[in-house]
Design a protein around this nucleic acid. Structure first.
Lengths: 243, 243
DNA sequence: GGCCCGGAGTCATCTGATGACTTTTCTCTG
DNA sequence: CAGAGAAAAGTCATCAGATGACTCCGGGCC
C-alpha cells in the first residue's frame, strides 16, 4: 500500500469510525503525519482526495474540517466530473432523470402544502415573464429543485440537482427555436404544478416524465455545441508525436 | 485562485475540450508544471483529486492516463464516500433504490432474451443452494446487477451497484433471523425473475420495488452494527491508542 | 468600551533530492 | 540473424526543509 493510500484510508477510517465527527476539526498536518507515518506531502495529497470527494474541507489558516457529511456534500462531487462523460452517458442520465423526476413529482403531489404550491406558481410566472434565456434556465432549475425538495428526500434532490446541472450545459433556450421551446416548456410546467396542487401523484408523475422526455428530444434534435470557457483555437495539436 | 485549483481546473479543461482524450497518456509532471505554472507538489495534489474522482489514473513508472470516462468510472468514486453518510442518508438511498430497481426491472422485462433469463434463474438456484451468508450476499448482488445490466443503461446500472454496495455493508443475512430472511428473499427473487421471463414490466417493477422495500424494513428493524475492516493490510499496527 | 496590531497556529507553496517502477534500447550470445 | 538479458532512460512516489499567506485570538492603545 502506497503512502498516500495509507493516509487516505487512515483518514477515512477515522471518519467512518466516528473518531473524527462531522464538522469537527481534524488534527494539524504535523500530528497526522506522525500518526499515519507519512510525510506532509503524501498526507496533503490524501487530504486533497477526500476534499475532492466532499468529505473534508481545508480552510487556509484555520485548519481542516470534516464536512457536515450531508448527502449533497458527497453527491455534489459528481458535478465536477459528470460533464466529462461522453454524449451517450448524457442520454443515459436523461433516462434516470425521467424516472426520478416522475417519482419526486408524485411525492410532492402527495406531500405539498398550499404555501409550496404558491412558490411553484410564482416561479412559473417569473419564468414566463422573463426574456433572458439564462435567467429562464436558472428559474427552470429552481422550479424543479423546489419540487424535488418538496418530495422530501434530500439525497434524491441533490442527485437530481447534479443531473440537471449536466443537462443545463446545453442551453437549448438560446437556440433560434428557443422561444418556441420555452413556450412549450412553460405549458409543461403549468400542467405539472397543477397536478401537484391537485394532490394527484399519477398526473404529476406523468407530467414530469413527459417534460423530461420532451427536453431530451430537443437535445437529441438540436444538440447545440457546448462552450464552457474561452474558446482556445486548437493551435496546439501536437498529434504527431514520436509514438 | 489557488495553485492547486489552477492545476485542477486546467487539467479538467484539457479533458473537457478533448485535448486529452479518454485513455490517453497525459504529459509528464514536469511539462504540466511549466504549462500550468505551478510546482510539482501542487500539480500532484490536483492529479490526486482527479484520480479520486475517477477521471485519471496514475501508473507508477509509466505515466498518468485519462480514464476511459465510462459512467462507472465516474460514479464509482461515490462508493468510497457513500458509506460515510449517516443512517438517515442510507434510508434515503433506499427510496431511490426502490424507484430505480423497479425501473430497471421493468426495462429488463421488456428487453430480456431467453439466455439472460436462464442466467437469472441459475443465479437464483446457486443462491438457494449455498449456506454461506457471504456467498449468498455476493450472489444477490450479482443477480440484481444482471437485471440492471439487462435494463440497458450502464450509467443506471453502475449507480445502482454503488447503492447496493452501501446497503450490503449491513449484512442482514448473518443475523440470527438470517435464514428466515433469506428464504423470503429467495421467494422475492423467483417472483421477480418470473415476471421478467414473462416479459411483464408491471409485475417486474412491482416485485422489484417490494423486494427493496422488504430489505429496507429488515434493516430498519434489526439495524445490525457495521464492521468495515474489509482491508486487512494492517501496515499501521500502532493503532492501539486510547480509542 | 472599542479599535488596532502583533503573535501563534495552521495551511499553501516551492525547491531539491532520492527511490521505485516501467518501458525502451542495446548488447551479447547462440 | 534471433532472442534473451542487461543497461539506460523516462516517469511517478516519497521525503525533507524553508518560506509565505491566512485566520484567529488576545493584549495594548486610544
Amino acid at each position: 500500500m502506497s503512502a498516500v493510500d495509507k493516509a487516505f484510508h487512515g483518514l477515512r477510517h477515522m471518519i467512518a469510525t466516528g473518531r473524527l465527527g462531522a464538522g469537527q476539526r481534524i488534527p494539524p498536518e504535523g500530528e497526522l503525519c506522525e500518526e499515519l507515518g507519512v510525510s506532509r506531502g503524501s498526507l496533503r495529497e490524501a487530504v486533497r482526495m477526500l476534499a475532492a470527494l466532499g468529505v473534508i474541507e481545508p480552510r487556509h489558516g484555520s485548519g481542516t474540517y470534516v464536512s457536515p457529511l450531508r448527502p449533497e456534500d458527497v453527491i455534489g462531487s459528481l458535478s465536477l466530473t459528470l460533464e466529462l462523460l461522453p454524449l451517450t452517458g448524457l442520454l443515459e442520465v436523461y433516462e434516470i432523470r425521467r424516472v426520478l423526476e416522475a417519482h419526486v413529482a408524485a411525492q410532492a403531489a402527495a406531500r405539498c402544502t398550499p404555501e409550496e404550491v404558491g412558490t411553484l406558481f410564482a416561479l412559473i410566472e417569473a419564468m414566463e415573464a422573463t426574456d433572458d434565456p439564462t435567467k429562464a434556465s436558472e428559474l427552470d432549475h429552481r422550479f424543479h429543485s423546489e419540487i424535488a425538495r418538496i418530495g422530501g428526500n434530500p439525497t434524491l434532490a441533490s442527485l437530481l440537482s447534479v443531473f440537471r446541472a449536466r443537462s443545463r450545459k446545453y442551453q437549448v433556450f438560446t437556440l433560434p427555436e428557443g422561444p418556441e421551446l420555452r413556450r412549450k416548456s412553460d405549458e409543461d410546467h403549468r400542467v405539472l404544478a397543477t397536478a401537484i396542487a391537485d394532490h394527484d401523484p399519477v398526473a404529476a408523475a406523468g407530467a414530469a416524465q413527459a417534460h423530461v422526455a420532451q427536453t431530451e428530444r430537443w437535445l437529441r434534435a438540436f444538440m447545440p455545441p457546448v462552450e464552457e470557457d474561452s474558446v482556445e483555437a486548437d493551435s496546439v495539436r501536437e498529434d504527431g508525436n514520436a509514438s
